[in-house]
Design a binder for these strands. Structure first.
Length: 408
DNA sequence: CAGAAACGGTTATGCGAC
DNA sequence: TGAAGTCGCATAACCGTT
């Protein structure tokens, strides 16, 4: 299908074809997880496919357009999705596979320009200011990328073309699925102003509710409201930010190589747990996961945060900064355990726990490494050995004794 | 010299995005 | 009407220092 697209896009969805000065591309995979699964198993093509965690507490991670037609969308509880689409085929997610496809797609982008800023596994901004002499107009470059992703990776994507990151991202919504949409530089305001306020980056359910109480419905309403008035309901930072966006002004530039700020892991149980020993076993497992990822990414962490979500869906966090940064599960678990115990819960019913490491310092920049060799007394060697075994035999080969269920 | 005020770090919460 | 898992950012309160 991709060949015919080369002739489409710009002409079909942007009759003006005026993409001068539109140096930013926003590229978003269509129904990413679901279409990767369709690619892996072509018998799913054209069917209602839902990717999501099985079990009673899962949500939809991705769904094909056939399923979306019935009202299914991501983050929807699986139970509801299956009522809407009782005949849908549910596929368990395979995140490793998606990461792999993601890397391949990002590599295509980077063959166009080094100015690639991934937003998530399935999304990226490109600044193509420097690529146009060689490769053509923004729309042409967009269509080349779409064709290559389709030919080489067997999935489709959509492209938004504009002069700012923010507008390019909104343009992508108009391109979906499997298309390209240009917002010419001199048409930004007329594109933006009719949109609902929820279209603005950072305006979710709560903020939209606040703003609509002021009678603000469209982006134009924001644009015509004094910043002072906006500040009263959403605070100064957000007010100034939104006002600027409403006039199409976005100071951000495409920034590759964004360093991670935190690494964490959390788990929702199949049913609520009130046994502290079981919770601690889970926290230990999560601590191991986080430590492993810290070491793989060459980071130390200075602050550990735990999160507990109760049966009624309220949640709390507790955090503690360490005297010295670490990438060892022993340290992370000891900290997480003390945080949990300090909550003094009386057999509360818990549905989720999480462990997160923040205050990340690249290993190479850490000045405290020498102190560690005195202190960590063999734990480092032990945990690095576990990393090696996991590499060879897979992550499930090594796990804490308390998580191994007795056979029989 | 005592006390304010500014400041930076820490802790906790909430919102939003994909 | 049942709600995952991973992240970033803003805000606010508090605390110890200067």
């Amino acid at each position: 299908m991709s060949r015919s697209q080369l002739n489409r896009g710009n002409s079909a969805r942007n009759p003006q074809g005026d993409d001068a000065g539109c140096n930013i591309l926003h590229i978003d995979m269509d129904a990413f997880f679901a279409l990767v699964e369709v690619r892996e198993n072509p018998s799913l093509a054209g069917k209602q496919v839902i990717v999501g965690y099985d079990g009673n507490r899962g949500v939809v991670l991705s769904a094909t357009y056939e399923a979306r037609k019935l009202g299914v969308h991501s983050a929807m509880p699986m139970s509801r999705a299956l009522r809407l689409a009782p005949n849908a085929i549910v596929v368990e997610p395979d995140h490793e596979k998606y990461s792999e496809v993601s890397e391949n797609v990002m590599a295509i982008f980077e063959s166009i320009t080094p100015l690639v800023q991934p937003l998530s596994v399935d999304e990226a901004f490109l600044d193509i200011s420097g690529a146009q002499k060689l490769m053509g107009t923004p729309s042409q470059i967009g269509e080349v990328i779409r064709a290559r992703v389709s030919d080489e990776q067997g999935i489709t994507c959509s492209v938004g073309v504009a002069s700012t990151m923010f507008v390019a991202k909104l343009a992508t919504n108009f391109a979906k699925p499997d298309g390209l949409h240009v917002v010419p530089a001199d048409k930004v305001i007329e594109f933006l102003h009719p949109l609902p306020i929820g279209a603005l980056w950072g305006v979710g359910e709560k903020t939209a509710e606040q703003l609509s109480r002021l009678g603000l419905v469209n982006v134009a309403d924001i644009a015509n409201t004094p910043v002072k008035t906006l500040t009263r309901v959403i605070g100064q930072a957000a007010a100034e930010h939104l006002y600027e966006l409403s006039w199409g002004r976005d100071p951000r530039v495409v920034t590759p190589n964004q360093a991670e700020k935190s690494i964490g892991a959390e788990r929702t149980f199949e049913s609520d747990i009130d046994d502290p020993e079981e919770i601690l076993a889970q926290i230990l497992d999560l601590s191991n996961k986080v430590a492993k990822r810290l070491r793989a990414a060459n980071y130390f962490s200075r602050t550990i945060t735990i999160k507990v979500r109760f049966a009624d869906f309220t949640s709390v966090t507790r955090s503690k900064s360490l005297p010295a940064s670490t990438d060892l599960a022993t340290d992370i678990y000891a900290t997480a355990k003390s945080l949990f115990e300090a909550m003094h819960l009386q057999r509360a019913r818990i549905r989720l726990v999480g462990v997160r490491a923040t205050g990340l310092v690249p290993t190479s920049e850490s000045s405290v490494q020498l102190e560690f060799s005195d202190r960590d007394s063999g734990w480092r060697e032990a945990e690095e050995a576990i990393d090696q075994v996991s590499l060879k035999f897979g992550n499930s080969a090594v796990k804490p004794a308390r998580l191994i269920k007795p056979e029989s």
